[in-house]
Structures are given as C-alpha cells and as structure tokens.
Amino acid sequence: MTKKRQFLRLALIAGFYLCLIAGGRWLGMTIEEQLQLSNLAQADMPYLGTLAAVLAAYIVLTAIPFVPGTEIGVALLMVFGAPVAVVVYLSTITALTLSFTLGRLTPERKLAGWLKRRGLVRAAALIEAFARLGPEGRDRYLTQNAPRWLKPWLVNHRMITFIALINLPGNTLLGGGGGIALVTGLSKLMSFPQFFLSVAVAVAPVPIAVVLAGWIGG
C-alpha cells in the first residue's frame, strides 16, 4: 500500500510538472499571438503606449516560472531590431530580478511547511536545513552533501552556473528564466550584487547580437 501511495504521489507530481510546462508554453504563445507584434511594426515604431504595454506584459511573463516569456522579447527584437534592444535588455533584467527578489523574501519555514503538507518531505527538509544556516553554513552544507561533480559549480562557480542555466536551450524544463531566478533567490546562495551582475551578463548576448547586426547591416 505504501509503495502504491508513493507511486501515485510521484505520478501526481510528474503530472503537475507537465501541466506547468504545457500551461506556461500555451500562455506565452497565446499572449504573444494576441499582441500581434508583426502588426505593430507596420509603422516604423509602435506608439509609445503600445510598446510600454507590450514590455509590461513581457516583464510579467518572464518573471513567472515555466512561462517562456523570453520568446516575446526575441520577437520584439526580431520585429523592431536595434531600436528596442536596450529596452528589452533592461526589461529582461527587471523581470528576472523581480523573480529573484520574490524568492529572497519568501519565508523559508512557511514554504517548508507547505511542501511537507503536500508530501514533498525531502524538499521541505532541505529548505529547513538551509533556513538554519548562514551563507558560510550553506556553502559547507553543499560541500558535504552535493554530488561531487556539482560541488565546484554550486560553491565556487555559482555565477557561471546561473549564466549557463539562463542560456541553456530548453531551460523551460527547469522553470525557465523566472523559475531559475526564483530558486536562486530562495537558496540565498547569491547576493543581490552577484545576481545582478550575473543576470546582466546572462541576458546580454541576444541584444548585443541584434545591435551588431543592425550596425553591420547599416
């Protein structure tokens, strides 16, 4: 009976996880279609109010875990090009910083209790253990308990790890940019300056490529 309950619990978690991915994908695509970015580009630039509304939707979507809001940002860059590159870049940083801040402000003990009530005992125990530790204690915990191959990336090179995860193809499976930033905030393994520097580097490649393409193309 116990094994059956464990199997059902795992099946429910897996089903919920798949629903998050599918739902986030659907929401992102639906809103992107509703915005009809290609129509906005019929003029050289959209009205300022319309562009502001699109960017506000982009920030909210990108901040939500499992929602591929970055696709709207890429669509904006592809449609309008270099003139909006800096604005999209700053909007992406704003969205991910919002998720990170929410994670940092989430009460750890309440989150652990919520997870425990839903049968996620190991996740709850990990959060409770982290809640009792300071920054140095968290590093020691990871050094002692993380898989050997992960230790350098979680302890010594966590900024590089974050940058790589943000740019990893298919990172929606890990929660997307918003989910990764949220978990990073929850872990409290990165300070605000470290996170801000990491996210500024992580989201820069595409806007820089668009600006260079526009400059080279004349």
Rank of each mutant, 00 (worst) to 15 (best):
A146F: 03
R9W: 11
M190E: 04
F80E: 05
A202M: 02
A43P: 02
E32T: 13
V121N: 13
E33I: 08
E32V: 07
L120I: 10
L27N: 00
L51R: 03
R104E: 12
F7V: 15
T94H: 04
V67T: 01
P147E: 05
L37N: 08
I208A: 15
Y141D: 09
T94P: 00
L18N: 04
Y89Q: 06
T94S: 15
A204N: 03
A14Q: 02
N145R: 07
I208D: 05
G81T: 09
W149M: 10
W215H: 11
I127Y: 02
N167S: 10
S91G: 08
W26S: 04
L10Y: 11
V199M: 08
Y89V: 09
Y47R: 10
P205T: 10
V67H: 00
P207V: 13
F162V: 12
A146C: 02
V60Q: 00
L197M: 15
D44L: 08
W26A: 14
P193L: 11
P205A: 09
L150G: 03
L174G: 04
L186I: 14
L51F: 13
F66K: 02
L61K: 00
T106I: 14
L40P: 02
K3H: 06
I180L: 10
A181S: 15
R9N: 08
G185L: 04
W149N: 08
V86F: 15
A146D: 05
L98M: 14
L98G: 02
G137M: 05
V88P: 01
G15I: 12
H157R: 14
